[in-house]
C-alpha cells in the first residue's frame, strides 16, 4: 500500500550541520560507492568520460552564497541534500504500483525496485529532488539511509550507520532516531535550533539541518593600542625626501 502509516515506531534520519560541512563531497562518493555495490540496482553513470556525463546519485552537495542582511562580506555554505524521509511523504502516496513506501518500524522511505514502473511521478512529487531515475536500470533510486548497513550484524558496530555519516571527515552528518527526544540527534537539534527545509510544502521532513553559528565579532581596535607608540604619519628618510620632491615637481 502506498498510503502513509499513521505512526512509525522510530523516525530514523540525518542531522546535517551547515556550520561544519566543508563541501568535500566525500559523503557523495561514499554513498555512490556503497549503494552501487550493495542493495538494489547499481547507481549508473552514462557517458562518464564523454561530452555529457550523467548519472544517478542519492546525495548531492550544493553551495550557496548568502549576503547577510546586517552587512559585511558574503558567506558561503556547502549544502548536502538527500532524501529527508518525510513523515508526510508526497512521493509515497502518488505511486500507482505500491513500489514506494514508508516503513512503520523505522520511518525509512524505500522503493521496491521490482514493482517500480519508472513513471517518474514520485520524483515530480518530491520538492527536494531526492529521487532520481537510474539512467540504465530505469527504476527510481533514492536514499535508503543505508538500510543494508545500519542493521547489518556482519559489520563492526561503528560501521552500522549510513555510509555518508561514517565517512564525513568533518563530523557534519549525524544519524539517529529523531522521534526519541532523548537521542543524541534530537538533543543536537534542540540545542542548535535545527530546522526543516521548505516547511511550507507540508512534508514534515524527518531530517533536520543545523544553521550556521553566528560569525565571531572581531573588535575594531586592539586593547593594547593605547600603550603603543603612535605610527609615524609623515614618511621619514628617503621616502620623506621622495615625497617632498615629487610634491614640488607636481
Amino acid at each position: 500500500m502506498t498510503s502513509l502509516p499513521t505512526h512509525t515506531e522510530k523516525s530514523l534520519g540525518l542531522v546535517i550541520d551547515l556550520d561544519t560541512c566543508v563541501g568535500c563531497h566525500a559523503c557523495v562518493t561514499a554513498c555512490k560507492g556503497w549503494n552501487t555495490e550493495n542493495y538494489g540496482a547499481p547507481l549508473a553513470d552514462v557517458d562518464a568520460y564523454g561530452a555529457e556525463p550523467v548519472g544517478s546519485f542519492l546525495n548531492r552537495i550544493h553551495s550557496y552564497e548568502v549576503q547577510p542582511d546586517t552587512g559585511g562580506p558574503a558567506q558561503l555554505f556547502h549544502f548536502p541534500k538527500s532524501c529527508l524521509h518525510c513523515a508526510d511523504a508526497p512521493c509515497v502516496t502518488v505511486c500507482p504500483t505500491g513500489a514506494s513506501y514508508k516503513r512503520v518500524e523505522d520511518g525509512i522511505v524505500l522503493v521496491n525496485e521490482s514493482d517500480c514502473i519508472g513513471c517518474g511521478l514520485c520524483a515530480w512529487a518530491c520538492p527536494y529532488g531526492a529521487r532520481e531515475m537510474d539512467p540504465s536500470e530505469k527504476v527510481m533510486k533514492k536514499c535508503t539511509l543505508c538500510v543494508d548497513r545500519i542493521y547489518n550484524e556482519n559489520l563492526p558496530e561503528e560501521d552500522r550507520q549510513p555510509a555518508c555519516v561514517r565517512t564525513c571527515p568533518a563530523g557534519a552528518r549525524h544519524f539517529g532516531d529523531l522521534s526519541d527526544p532523548e537521542s543524541d540527534v534530537s538533543k543536537l537539534v534542540a540545542e542548535r535550533g535545527g530546522f526543516d527545509l521548505m516547511p511550507e510544502q507540508g512534508t514534515a521532513p524527518v531530517n533536520k539541518y543545523l544553521p550556521p553559528r553566528p560569525k565571531d565579532e572581531v573588535p575594531e581596535f586592539d586593547v593594547l593600542a593605547p600603550y603603543l607608540e603612535p605610527v609615524a604619519e609623515e614618511p621619514q628618510g628617503f621616502l620623506g625626501w621622495l615625497d617632498k620632491t615629487l610634491e614640488r615637481i607636481g
Binding site: Y64, V66, Q67, P68, D69, T70, Q75, F77, P211
Partner: peptide, 12 residues
Amino acid sequence: TGLGTIGTVKAF
C-alpha cells in the same frame, strides 16, 4: 535552504 534567516541567498 533555510539560510534566508541570515540574508539574501544565491546559488553559488
